[in-house]
Design a protein around this nucleic acid. Structure first.
Length: 474
RNA sequence: GGGCCGUUAGCUCAACUGGCAGAGCAGGGCACUCUUAAUGCCAAGGCUGGAGGUUCGAUUCCUCCACGGCCUACCA
């Protein structure tokens, strides 16, 4: 059956409704939530929702009506609603949105059902819903037409309800600790706060190029200078890089800063925050993720970054020949990389990262990889920083914030001297802010999309973003 | 950007080594006033993602293109 024919049949029904003097796209309808209905209810009920199935039996029919709270069976009976309404009922389709009034009863098979007394059409479907039994499986259609996915796949509703819950749990946890939620610019004159290729846009009136933010970090720390001591932003950031099961060009992070704290405090906070979420979502601290089980039981494992290399048998990770030798020993391809940190990063990804299933903090990183972090008091070549890994995914990144403006400027200069596709500009505005004195602070970033992936057992970031970026069809 | 795989009816899927493209659901008609993947009967629905090529003959083999998936690269 071609799509046009199906559509024309629906359009004919639409015309039928109009010919009866009924507007098939209705207005406000006073209704109660389907999930609130219980068998004890004796008085008339009023509900609205989408028709998901119709089982016609000549002069009667059963339908399932779904609203966001749930689904209930309703019973249309000709000798109850009369000839006129029953004729209207015949011109309803699966997918139509209706409002109805009736009384609850329980069928012979024990199912709570609304005996319809009156109903009205609120929105006529013209398209055709995907099949009721198998649902919508084609991932391309799921992403492009997320509304269809949401209508027919209850699991999808679940994932996004959980996503919202996670973010709400973050907000109430942080609120209780006295953190203030703020909003900072998403259009930056100079991209900063992370090492990533930015998107460029243009402001006409000011005739200036702007960059979509790659991270809110520098603005949030200006707020620390201003005396806002505990701030966070649940931020959409944008990175002009590849797309994968772990990367969407726009993604959501939690970034927070706590004055007079440090990375140790951030580690405790991270553990408590994620445990707060896990405990509220599940009855257990052990959850399934794909084929593996993740155990969130605290305290979480802590491994020094430097020890990762010792454990691999690399005596001195700064010796690039030892690092290259390890690649050779493990028969791993260096993929043409020559830079020490690029090689270490790759080796970490190949050998260590996949093993970090239960939440694990990797602690203290080389200063070269962390231009915004404070160095360790006992070792100026390393910084007070950690990354949190769960299920082999990098979930969080935090450090003791560098608040020395002179040191910061030096680091920026070193940074732009390394090869990068970013504009070679130092954010003097940020340096100037530091010159007015930023309190020592701990800062933390958590990848919300990835955390949601883990807590909803999703294998692709696209499954936790309502409208992931796809190339336009045709 | 590279490699591999996929694309068949509105949806979910078949079609062996090249031989008339098939089913369930949805939609249409008929019957049916407690069904719930309702049931029974009838009819319809396709340029097999697009463009070329090989062949008597292509959903099937080859080339190119489009879109997607996985891996990989880029990536704090």
């Amino acid at each position: 059956m071609s799509e046009d024919i199906l559509k024309n049949e629906k359009l004919a029904k639409l015309e039928w409704w109009k010919s009866q003097g009924i507007e098939p796209y209705g207005r406000k309808f006073k209704r109660e939530l389907i999930a609130s209905l219980t068998p004890e209810r004796k008085d008339p009920v009023s509900i609205a929702g989408r028709i998901m199935t119709i089982r016609r039996h000549g002069k009667a029919a059963f339908c399932d009506i779904m609203d966001q709270s749930g689904k209930i069976q309703v019973y249309f009976k000709k000798d109850i609603i009369g000839d006129v309404l029953f004729e209207r009922f015949k011109n309803l389709d699966v997918g139509d949105i209706i409002g109805l009034k009736g009384e609850l009863f329980v069928t012979h098979t024990g199912q709570l059902t609304v005996l319809v007394k009156d109903f009205t059409i609120l929105s006529k479907i013209i398209g055709t819903l995907p099949e009721k039994w198998h649902g919508l499986k084609d991932v391309e259609i799921k992403y492009r037409k997320r509304y269809l996915d949401l209508i027919v796949n209850p699991q999808t509703q679940n994932v996004f309800a959980t996503r919202t819950k996670i973010i709400n749990l973050m907000r109430n946890f942080l609120g209780q600790l006295g953190f203030v939620e703020v909003e900072t610019p998403m259009m930056h004159p100079i991209p900063g706060g992370a090492e990533a290729k930015p998107f460029i846009t243009h402001h006409n009136a000011l005739d200036m190029d702007l960059y979509l933010r790659i991270a809110p970090e520098l603005y949030l720390k200006k707020l620390l200078v201003g005396g806002m001591e505990k701030v966070y932003e649940i931020n959409r950031s944008f990175r002009n890089e590849g797309i994968s099961t772990l990367h969407n060009p726009e993604f959501t992070m939690l970034e927070l800063y706590s004055a007079y704290g440090d990375y140790q405090e951030m580690m405790e906070l991270t553990e408590k925050l994620i445990l707060h979420i896990v405990k509220n979502l599940f009855d257990t601290l052990e959850i399934d993720y794909g084929e593996t089980k993740i155990n969130f039981q605290p305290p979480w494992k802590k491994i020094y970054w430097e020890d990762c290399w010792k454990n691999l048998g690399i005596e001195n990770w700064r010796d690039i020949t030892q690092v290259k030798q390890k690649f050779a020993d493990l028969r791993l391809d260096t993929e043409g990389k020559e830079d020490l940190f690029a090689l270490l990063d790759l080796l970490f990804k190949r050998t260590i990262e996949p093993e970090l299933i239960d939440p694990t903090f990797i602690i203290k990183f080389p200063v070269e990889t962390s231009p915004l972090a404070k160095t360790c008091p006992d070792d100026p070549t390393m910084v007070e920083r950690f990354e949190l890994y769960i299920a082999g995914l990098e979930i969080a990144n935090a450090y003791s914030e560098l608040n020395d403006p002179v040191e910061q400027k030096k680091r920026f200069i070193e940074e732009i001297q390394r090869p990068t596709e970013r504009p070679k500009v130092i954010d003097e505005d940020y340096i100037e802010a530091l010159e007015y004195g930023m309190p020592p602070a701990g800062g933390l970033g958590i990848g919300i999309d990835r955390l949601v992936m883990i807590l909803t057992n999703s294998s692709s970031i696209r499954d936790v973003i309502l409208f992931p970026l796809l190339r336009p069809k045709q």
